[in-house]
């Protein structure tokens, strides 16, 4: 009886048209479920026709059309979210690597200039564009990196950890912006541009402390703390020494080792983050 009903034009054409509509779903979803969906729709057609004839078929199509539109939107949105999320994580991983390079470059040029003022390193034609780019782009790259860390590990690290990364990503650039805009009218305000990344790093360090316990990263859970702690400590010590006797930045060699640790930690953290985006992509595609 069922086989006989399937041959009816209204059912056969409905099934054929529904098979055609299934093309609208994302490829991976279609590949996995189109066969089962088609079979389910065929079952529904048979039942609708048996119960109410053509009127049942019309009613079934009304319900199916609403289901089709709503599920199409949902599946495509989810696919987009998965794709854009993993792309953002990958880009932010590289942003974190570049931020590490930028901060290392800034301090390297600064201390080389301090150590050998006669060389005028900062005004050398091949250093100046690099230094200025690093100086302005560094805080933004760091902010993008923190947002990527939050996107990938925020949920696993706890709401507090996620919050720290968000504050760090927002507060740092905001402070830097105050420094850049404020220094146009008051030169002394430019220092806030330096405080910006320090504040971001401080929040990264707090996230790092949380990460030591919750271990959200696949490996290297000490890296956020190592990457984040150096700059706030240097700035803090510098401020204290400056307040005491006006002596700041007189021990560059002592600073190189922590700065190298910060640089290596940020690069390693960025590489882990962008690598994790690939894993998330394959999970989403599975």
């Amino acid at each position: 009886m069922a086989a006989h009903l399937e041959d009816l034009p209204s059912i056969a054409r409905s099934v054929k048209f529904y098979r055609f509509l299934l093309v609208l779903y994302p490829a991976d979803f279609r590949q996995e479920y189109s066969g089962q969906m088609l079979q389910l729709f065929r079952d529904c057609c048979l039942r609708a026709y048996r119960q109410n004839g053509l009127l049942g078929m019309v009613r079934l199509w009304a319900v199916t059309f609403i289901d089709l539109v709503s599920s199409l939107i949902k599946e495509h949105m989810q696919k987009e979210t998965n794709m854009s999320k993993s792309t953002f994580i990958r880009i932010s991983g590289w942003a974190l690597v570049l931020a590490g390079v930028a901060f290392f470059l800034i301090f390297l040029v600064y201390y080389l200039d301090e150590a050998n003022p006669l060389l005028h390193i900062m005004s050398a034609y091949y250093v100046t564009p690099l230094y200025i780019s690093a100086f302005y782009a560094g805080p933004l790259l760091l902010s993008a990196g923190l947002l990527g860390l939050r996107t990938r590990y925020g949920e696993t690290a706890s709401p507090a950890g996620s919050g720290m990364l968000l504050f760090g990503a927002l507060a740092g650039p905001a402070l830097s912006l105050v420094g850049i805009i404020g220094s146009a009218s008051n030169d002394s305000l430019w220092i806030y541009h330096i405080y910006g990344p320090s504040v971001s790093m401080l929040f990264l360090a707090v996230f790092g402390i949380i990460a030591l316990d919750s271990k959200p990263l696949p490996r290297g859970n000490a890296l956020p703390l190592l990457a984040g702690i150096v700059l706030p400590v240097i700035m803090g010590v510098g401020l204290i020494l400056g307040a005491i006797d006006g002596v700041i930045d007189r021990h560059p060699l002592v600073l190189y080792a922590p700065l190298a640790i910060q640089f290596l930690s940020m690069v390693a953290l960025g590489i882990i983050l962008q690598g994790d985006a690939s894993e998330q992509e394959s999970l989403a595609a599975a």
């Binding site: 479920y33 969906m37 389910l40 529904c44 319900v63 609403i66 089709l68 199409l72 599946e75």
Partner: peptide, 25 residues
């Protein structure tokens, strides 16, 4: 799938509409 759909319809008096897209999603 069809068994699930039938049971959901029976349990909810048809108040939870579940077409193929919603079900397999």
């Amino acid at each position: 799938g069809y068994g699930i759909m039938q049971e959901v319809e029976a349990n909810t008096n048809g108040q939870i509409p579940m077409g193929p897209g919603t079900l397999y999603g």
